[in-house]
Design a protein around this nucleic acid. Sequence first.
DNA 1: TTAGAGAATGAACCGCAGTTCATTCTTGGC
DNA 2: GCCAAGAATGAACTGCGGTTCATTCTCTAA
Lengths: 226, 226
Amino acid sequence: MRPGLKRRVKTARPDSTKSRESGSTKGAAPATGPGSEKYQRILDAAVEVIAENGYFSSPVSAIAKRAGVADGTIYLYFKSKDDVLRTAIDATFNKFHKQVEDEFKTLQGPREQLEYIAQVHLESHAVNRSMAILMQTEVRQSAKFIAEFSHHHLVKYIQVVREVVRRGQQEGIFRGDVSDGVVAHCMFGAIDELLSSAVFTGRVYDAKTTAAQVIDVLLHGITAES
Amino acid sequence: MRPGLKRRVKTARPDSTKSRESGSTKGAAPATGPGSEKYQRILDAAVEVIAENGYFSSPVSAIAKRAGVADGTIYLYFKSKDDVLRTAIDATFNKFHKQVEDEFKTLQGPREQLEYIAQVHLESHAVNRSMAILMQTEVRQSAKFIAEFSHHHLVKYIQVVREVVRRGQQEGIFRGDVSDGVVAHCMFGAIDELLSSAVFTGRVYDAKTTAAQVIDVLLHGITAES
DNA sequence: TTAGAGAATGAACCGCAGTTCATTCTTGGC
DNA sequence: GCCAAGAATGAACTGCGGTTCATTCTCTAA
């Protein structure tokens, strides 16, 4: 049987008592474009649901339900299920990179820059808990399609830290006998693990204070008396 | 149609030219028990296949094929697909903990103990690359059933490091004004990230040298001149 | 009021993959 | 050689879930 020959029976629509909050706040909203309100609602719903159940245990139908739309509607806004997740992750990383880039214009000291990165990274938990969970679970591979593109963002993060470290070494602020790569990975890993642990245990912390502690350890080590 | 009423047609088995390497090296092998050779082959195959494709993109049939057994055979040795992965991860963690525990009997200095943990952790890449990949991808959640039990192993790791740090603080070797928890997470995170990066980029390193570098940074920091 | 264009819907399609189990193969004792 | 008893097999079962698309709804312009 070819599809499209014998479909639809549909026992008369129940009745249109759906909420329908499309008050159309703007005259010319971009319809199904990225600016649309429904577009954002689907993204948020996807992040929430996937954070709770994991990508492969989150049917599109569950995401649609959370967003208050029909299953098929999601495909008006996104190419596929993958695309929804990819878009959400991309947006988060881009926001992070932009925030750091902007701040670096006025914050010039290597030590201060490292501390700022640590702080923003640690703050992500409070900014959007679901997204933080998602980052700790789905981004670290498990699905090949995520692996490839998110790896790129991670590399960019490491690059930024490396450059700061290298500059600090050139300025004589940091030791020159340690690899900037190792330092960058150590710093990223330390912060990420702290965040991860907080996410999974539900522990809360102050991002500024914790960032200061991490950078303190990174800069001075844990050996007694200097 | 009830199952079991009209099954099997089977066009005569092709011919029994299967390898059949069951030379039965031991007189009384425990059949389908955990000691069996086939049991181990299934575990190894599962780790390999899942490392390559991810858990949810690894059909049981693919694992069976890699192990050289029929799909159904896996269910003679394991309760479910989950069970295979769980068993493999458990075994790896248990081996790690045992190795550390044993070495600690003769290696008593806090600094040396931290370095040893770092080294073993970093060595895991060389010991079993597939398992290292699996640890970096599947263990960090994405599937709820893995989350729960693997979290337990991670907590145990952190506990061990915390105790070493605390002892170092009591002995006056380490600073007492930094949280042992933060230090433990920093150390674990740093090493894990280094390993992760190596796993995904294919970069190789010497575990002993790298471990020494990480511990050096952790102990002395990256600030110039002491 | 009404036509029609586009947004939204959700049932149906379809393929996949975890698990089962009737059947076949293998082994070891007689 | 023969016959249980257990190991192994793999086709079939089953349910799930991503995606499609015929149909319905909504909204604007004439």
